[in-house]
Every structure is written in C-alpha cells, then in structure tokens.
Design a protein around this nucleic acid. Structure first.
Lengths: 246, 246
DNA sequence: GCCTCGGGTTGATCTGTGTCAAAGCGAACA
DNA sequence: TGTTCGCTTTGACACAGATCAACCCGAGGC
C-alpha cells in the first residue's frame, strides 16, 4: 500500500496548507470542505477547549501556537502537545476533548464542523488514510517526547525543545552555510517548563547555562540565535535529529 | 460519523480477538485475512524487531508481553509502549520500525504479511477506520504516560504502572465486592524502571514502601495482591483512572 | 547438599532539581 | 518620568532519586 501523498492542499483562502487534507482529494470534496469551513480567533491565554468538553469541530491552526495540556487534581500540569501552524486539532470519531487546548499566542484556526467532516471522511478513504498517517506522526512525536521526559537531563531537555522549535518555526532566518539559525521563542519560561517536566527556574538557569557555553545567543529574552545547529542537536543528546512536534 | 464498532473479531484459530480487525468486516475479507496469516514465536528476551529494520509484517500479540523501547547513544533507555495480548504491532504505510520491539516473556504473535494487509486496508475502509481508532487510543495512552513521566513522584509512578497492569492483566483474580485484585507482575524491576524513567533501585524501594503502607501485598516477588484498588488508584494521584496501555 | 547465577533488596552517600525568596528588567500606562 | 505589572533571573538551601556497593534469596544444575 502507498498512502496518499503527504503533500497537502491549500484551501481557497487559508494562508496555510491543511495537513489533514490530502492532495488526491477530488475537487467536489474540496468544495464540500469549503462549505463546512469557518474561522475562529482566540487571544493569547484564552482556552480553545477544556478537557471533557463536547467538541463540535476539528480544524487546523492557521497562525499562532496552541498547547495541549493535562492537569492533575493538585494543580501539577504537563503539556502533552504543541500545535504549530498547519497542525490539526480534534479527534474524528471521539466525543469529548481529552486535554485542555489553550492559545499560547493569538491564534487563528480554520475549523470544520465535526459531523460533516466525519461524513466526508467516511465517503473519502483518502482523508481517513491521511488522518491515520498524521496520527501515527503524532504518536511518534509523543513517544519521542517520552524519552525526553523520562531520561534526559534538564540541559538536554532544553536543547531538545529548542532544536524542535528551531526546525519548525516559520519566522526563522537561516544561514545554510554556517548552520546558523535565529528564531522567535514564542513560549514563556513557564510554558517551556510545562512541556519539559521542569520548573521555570530550572528552565531559566539552563537557558543561561547554554548561553554561557555559547550554544545559543539570546538576542532578547524571546529571540534565540543558534550559531551552530549541529552543536545544539549534540547537546540534545539525541540519536534522532529533533523529531516532529505533536 | 460513527466509526465501526469497537468490538473486535476472533479469527478462526487465535485464542484472542484481534483488536485491529473490526466487527463489520465481511466474510470474504476475513478469509482473505486468514490466507495471509501466520504465527511466530519468540523467547523471553529475544528481539522481535530492531529500530530501523524493514518491517514486513503487522500483527497482534497472542500471548506474552512485548515492549517498545528507545535507546540513546550512551545507553540510556526509555520504554515507550507495552504490548499486551491483543495489542497490535506495526505501522501500515510505514517502512522501517521506529523502536526496538522486544519479547519480555515468551511471546506468540499472529502476523499478517504487510503488503497484502495494506492492500486489504485500501479496499476496506472499516479496517482503516479501526486502525485510526486504535492509533488514537495509543496516542492517548502515550500522552497519559507523558504526565506520569514528567510530573509524578516515584511512588505515584509505581502506583500508576501497577494500576494499569492490574486493569489489563488476564491472569488476574478479582473479588469485585472488596475491590481486591491479584495479578502476576510479568516485568522485572529493571523493565519497570525503564518504563517509569527511574532506576531499578528506586523501583525496588518504592515497591517496599507501598508494601509497608499496605497498598499492595507481595505474595512473591512477582505476584502482587492489591487489597483495595481504589487506594492504589489514589496513590497514583491521577484524575483519570489508569488509562490504557500503548 | 552445595554452588552458581540472575534478580531483588537495602544501606550510605552524592547530586541535580525543586523550593522559597529576592531582585532585575522592559513594556505599557498614568 | 515615574509606577506598575508580568515575566525573568539569580541565590541559598532542601530533598527526591541516582549512584555505588554490599548482601539476600530462590531456582537450577551437579
């Protein structure tokens, strides 16, 4: 079997390509998608969905960053996924949301009403296959992150996160020859800590440590220059090279 | 959309139900499955697949326990999944294996050759939907585990693992009224440590501590009695009640 | 019965992160 | 121009869990 090509399709007025929609879908299916599509905006800090809520839509992040987090009764929280532009939100076939989804920056989402999307999916095997493909990607990313959470040191954790963000950030500027990359860090120290299973103080200290040893340069608190990407990846102590975000 | 019913199908000579095969599949598809099916046995400790290997089959665990693990260059390892009987192995549409799969006990697997299985999946949307359903379950389990790895204490981690194993073990004996459960712990202390991101010494100490406070009774090193399941779940400190294994 | 060997326990000590607390910094606003 | 407020940094100290090391226990094998 060859699953439909990974390359996805740009819908008529989104600035992004929806990774959930495959390139083999026929024109009338796309028109169908257009009819059930609408946009929603969220301000930074605003919840998109609470865990347990009824979800009546699925969709893609168009701009901004959202996070998936789990919370324990006593308030401890763990971020379990990071949603960057083009990432898909929602579980076709599932009723309630499993996690809190929160807009970390201002976010625009392109949503599809859930029922029609699912109907379309039933009629269109390619969409189901594409969704399976994406879910497998997310599963890989989650398992990759289990290694980070379970076995890496604080310094390695920070380096792993920065490597992933550097590789997926759209606002980044690259210099292919030198391997230099600069990008905007759109997470607070606290959000980084939540993702890495650390405290914000430890994050801050390790950022300072990485700065001191020249692995990163902080042009401002939220703007990071990586003089040599290979060095950062080495600090991440990884056999893989950063992986995908889920 | 309603995905095909979750109830899975018992194939003609397996003692288990393959959770990957949905109950709506037509008879000729099942016969097709039968023609591409074969069994493989593995001894305890034996590798089933190495990370990066070409995978030419998918299948279900029939008996025994297998583990998915990731390894760093310096030897640190993290288990990222636990495969119990009826669990599915393999990534339709993917070439290489992403993790080491190792038989922890003696294992029998019911395998399908990959190509024919994928062909069948292309023709049979129900199988694809069922697979998506399962992958979403695994993703939930992986994310649940991220919370365990990132934010729980050693004691909570052990309790979480025991709770999951107790809920899924087939060899268990229950007493519904009192909430008492006894089951075989089929993992070494080291395997538990690998799953929990701990050392085996810490696992041993926390097992002793849980024993001392009466949460568990060790009938032998590998046979665990849980006098009160609610108490164990409380020790796991979870808002959810144990979750699923991936 | 004795030996061996793999897994398991327990103890002493070390160390990476968490915790608590204070102070720095920059953006927005009066 | 100063005040405030949210985010960040830095320091001092505490502690959970890692590390190193010794010993225990039960199942085979001879």
């Amino acid at each position: 079997m060859t699953l439909p090509q990974l390359q996805s399709l740009q819908c008529s007025d989104c600035p992004i390509r929806h990774r959930a929609v495959c390139s083999r879908c026929e024109t009338d299916e796309l028109q169908m998608l257009d009819t059930i599509k609408y946009y929603r905006s969220f301000e930074a800090g605003q919840p998109i969905i609470w865990s347990g809520d009824q979800m009546n839509f699925v969709g893609s992040v168009v701009t901004g960053i959202a996070t998936l987090t789990q919370t324990m009764e006593d308030g401890r929280t763990q971020m379990v996924g990071l949603l960057l532009p083009s990432d898909f939100v929602g579980r076709p076939g599932r009723e309630g949301a499993a996690y809190d989804v929160v807009a970390t920056t201002d976010v625009v989402m392109c949503c599809f009403r859930k029922k029609p999307f699912e109907d379309l999916m039933l009629e269109t095997p390619h969409i189901a296959h594409r969704l399976l493909e994406m879910t497998l990607d997310e599963l890989d990313a989650a398992r990759e992150w289990m290694l980070v959470l379970g076995r890496k040191t604080a310094r390695e954790k920070i380096a792993s996160l920065l490597a992933i963000l550097a590789q997926r950030d759209v606002s980044l500027s690259k210099n292919a020859a030198s391997g230099e990359v600069t990008f905007d860090l759109k997470l607070t120290r606290e959000a980084m800590a939540d993702y890495l299973g650390l405290t914000l103080e430890t994050v801050s200290r390790q950022m300072s440590a990485l700065k001191k040893s020249g692995v990163i340069v902080l042009e401002s608190k939220r703007r990071v220059k990586v003089p040599d990407m290979r060095l950062l990846i080495e600090e991440a102590g990884d056999d893989t090279d950063g992986g995908v975000v889920g």
